[in-house]
Design a protein around this nucleic acid. Structure first.
Lengths: 219, 219
DNA sequence: CCTCCCCACGTACACCGTACGTCTTTGACC
DNA sequence: GGTCAAAGACGTACGGTGTACGTGGGGAGG
């Protein structure tokens, strides 16, 4: 039948399937059925399932829009990058763990690293410091996204509502948890994300470095 | 023969198996073989594989030593907690993703939350602020551990060495990556972890709050 | 025409989670 | 001791999984 069946089509369909039915639901057979083809046909375009998931991760990461210009204001550039990550994570919530659990040394995977390093350097951090600064922010963003993904997945498997019994909390001596329970339950992920992000940026801003601001003498 | 086969033994053996052969290698059959019993015998102690992984996560999280006293110095308490997380993650590197990918609303899972909230309050953050402060640090730590776990797993599957070709980097226009490549490759995870942690703590220290230090009027 | 290669596809195998039934052991009660 | 019931170890079986391998058809180059 009409089966052009290219690698790109396979990957895009895989992303759709993950977003619809979850990561665990993906299988070569189901994916092939979704494409209206035989299971083994996929192997003409993808060596194995692991490579397919790598391709999925890369495909999603490629949607990152990197339009920030570090030379204008590194703080705004950092904010823009972090929010960009969170935005695409919000677009593919059930695929976040796939992307997070594989590190991509490919060109497309290194593209955000490039911009992040450029931003760190524009902020006045050199050499090892630039790498550390980038890693600090990236790790924070990564943690936020993994956390959010975990919540999303748990909400999707909504059979198990969050069992938070105040009496049980008291019995376990978790007084702070019980007192702050309303604040814990109502989860404004974006506010939390922004809070920590500003925290990091302000700390970086207070750090000693070669050029105090974006408008300076760079290499 | 000698098969006491308790739930605790099953979980501990599962952890061993994950650490030895990786998360993907775990299966009810292999785990049973490791225990010298039949596969179906496990189901007398664990409802299904998902619950077993939950139990694994809980078992590992239970090894967290929470001996920090927030009332003495909240900064040192925060450091101690964060390092505690990283230490047990280092003890069970291949199980980190299992723990990270499931959120635990059980008593043992909430125990660290309790201490973290107590620490945030001791630092002078109240209500919603305490929750946000805790989440910021926890998310950063989580990101670091996931990152490290990803690296560890990639190193264990050492078949694919990190292909970082300088010529290819130049061709892709990744000049910053190429220039900082040595700093990127030599990975001092602990230094990076501490750097970001101090960053966050210093930023929190600079934040306005009700009581400027641990020794103050709380509540 | 023939030939060769690409690629879709079916079959097959080993392994997976687990529902179900069976058998052995154990321990409580008379 | 005898009896009965519950617990738990185990085998079998079913539907699903990744993928190695062989087969067949259709388009391109001679």
């Amino acid at each position: 039948m009409g089966s052009p069946l290219s690698r790109d089509l396979i990957v895009r369909t895989a992303v759709e399937l993950i977003e619809r039915d979850g990561v665990n639901a993906i299988s070569m057979r189901r994916l092939a059925a979704e494409l209206g083809s035989g299971a083994m046909s996929l192997y003409n375009h993808v060596p194995n399932k692991s490579a397919l998931l790598d391709a999925v991760a890369e495909h999603i990461l490629a949607e990152l829009e990197l339009d920030a210009d570090p030379s204008v204001d590194w703080r705004e550039a950092a904010r823009s990058m972090a929010r960009g990550f969170r935005e695409v994570a919000g677009r593919y919530p059930r695929s976040v763990m796939v992307v997070a659990s594989r590190q991509l040394n490919t060109t497309v995977g290194l593209r955000p690293v490039e911009l992040a390093l450029a931003t760190a350097r524009a902020a006045g951090f050199d050499g090892q410091a630039a790498v550390q600064v980038m890693r600090a922010v990236v790790n924070y963003v990564l943690g936020c996204l993994v956390h959010e993904a975990s919540l999303t997945e748990a909400r999707w498997a909504a059979d198990a509502a969050p069992r938070l019994d105040e009496a049980a909390l008291d019995a376990a001596g978790l007084v702070n948890v019980r007192e702050l329970l309303p604040a814990l339950v109502e989860h404004d992920s974006e506010a939390d994300f922004e809070f920590g992000l500003e925290l990091l940026i302000s700390a970086l801003d207070a750090l000693p470095r070669t050029s105090p601001d974006g408008a300076g003498s760079s290499g």
